[in-house]
Amino acid sequence: MPDKPSDLVQGTLDMLILKTLALEPMHGYGISVRIEQMSKGVFRLNAGSLFLAIQRLERDGLIDGEWKPTENNRRARYYTLTAKGRKRLDSETREWGRQVAAIGRILEAS
């Protein structure tokens, strides 16, 4: 595990949030923990950029937010992926795959 968390590749945060929410509805902290766990601590988000992205996704209609009680009896906003969000996630994943493969090919060529 590297000591210092890395910065996210530009524009990928939205995709990661969508991916996280594809499994189940989640609140902001949950998203952040899940991304951290799945990336094995490589990506750590600060609150500002996380909620900025969430606000953007919600306004674009890719996710829906809803206030609900948490397990510890607090109130938190849970976010659900919309149908439009799911479609966007699929297309972005595909595009990402294509790009990674292409970049890999370039880097491996000697």
Binding site: Y29, A47, L50, T70, R74, R75, A76, R77
Partner: peptide
């Protein structure tokens, strides 16, 4: 609402 949401976030952490 923003206050509450962010507060909850930091509180959970």
């Amino acid at each position: 609402e923003l206050n509450e949401e962010l507060g909850a976030y930091l509180e959970m952490e």
